[in-house]
Design a protein around this nucleic acid. Structure first.
Lengths: 188, 188
DNA sequence: AAATAGCTGTGATGTAGGTCACACTAATGG
DNA sequence: CCATTAGTGTGACCTACATCACAGCTATTT
């Protein structure tokens, strides 16, 4: 299981065995069951989670009780409530599991320690963060410029695996459209 | 003019006079006129711009020629094409000035040098980046969960200055609605 | 000072997509 | 293995918002 994490890191920064073991001491491994909450809105959420196996979603519940999905995360992805994580405040978001899941999580404190002790991990996290920002900006463009069906097609093209594994109802919520509209979008 | 930059930095990391001067050597000062392009889609755009004075927008032009605004930036804000900047590729976005503008820009190369030489600048940029990510996530929530008028109200509340300085036509484009709809949104 | 370009408002009309309601099927958990 | 919960499809209807078209107004530019 650790190899998945090591692979992920080495895509950006090469590590010796020794270095990787050192990195690993800053993480905690944990298993979650389907439907289990990883982050609960209102609670602190000082951890960033690397998914070694499984599938999760982060979501926001609005004032009329509707849920809106901000992110999915499957193998090799990271997920957290970024606001709760970086600003050490209580989480506005929830994170739960769509499948049984195995993660390695790192607290914000451990991350800061790790980065000062091992310079190149700073570089790793910077790369990840900017990649996340760029992806989110692409989604923003999609939301303000494309209509429902185009957004859905782009989603399928961009995340073919996710669009198989995730129920359509949830994809609709991620795309900001009703599940009925997405359901009618099939003929082709 | 340099004080504006110094203030911005010191909100996150304290600097000695000497350190600030060192930081400054990595930036270039430049003036742009209203309507002038700072980044042109298709060209490289290896700079991140700190706005000391003025107002800019970054925008994307879709295949039918419509423009969609990704970001505004006024005094004390940063603006770049993040993809072109961090990945050193040609810009998908444009950036131009809505007013005469004075910026301090830093190339990605200079930024990397600066960060290795002066550790705490790394921390500064990390903070800025994560704050940007969090803001963009808030916008995403707004786009998928709120309707036009709510988004507009939230925009006005969040950016009272911008909503005065920026023509409504452009705000509409930022919010992903037509200028006519926004124009009809006034009575209250 | 005239000319152009940019910004805003408003009516008429069309449509994408929301909401409600119901029915069927597939998981899954006790 | 039965009972419940989650997921999907589809019709009827409604509405938020887009688009088109035109008109007046205010900055900029020459």
């Amino acid at each position: 299981m650790e190899d998945v994490l090591r692979n992920q890191l080495e895509k950006i920064v090469p590590l010796t065995d020794e270095e990787f073991l050192f990195v690993l001491t800053h993480f905690t491994a944990r298993t979650f069951r389907k439907h289990q909450y990883v982050v609960q809105a209102g609670d602190p959420a000082p951890n960033d989670h690397f998914v070694a196996k499984g599938l999760l979603k982060s979501f926001y519940i609005d004032d009329v009780g509707k849920t809106h999905i901000l992110q999915f995360a499957m193998e090799d992805w990271w997920i957290s409530d970024p606001q709760a994580y970086h600003n050490r405040v209580n989480a506005p978001l929830n994170i739960d599991c769509l499948e049984d899941t195995h993660v390695f999580f790192i607290s914000i404190d451990n991350r800061e320690k790790l980065c000062t002790d091992l310079q190149k991990m700073d570089y790793f996290f910077m790369k990840k963060t900017t990649a996340g920002y760029i992806a989110l900006q692409r989604r923003t463009v999609s939301l303000i410029s494309q209509k429902a069906e185009e957004r859905f097609n782009q989603f399928v093209q961009l995340y073919p695996t996710l669009s198989q594994r995730v129920p359509k109802t949830l994809i609709a919520s991620y795309l900001g459209i009703s599940r009925e509209t997405l359901s009618r979008m099939y003929a082709h």
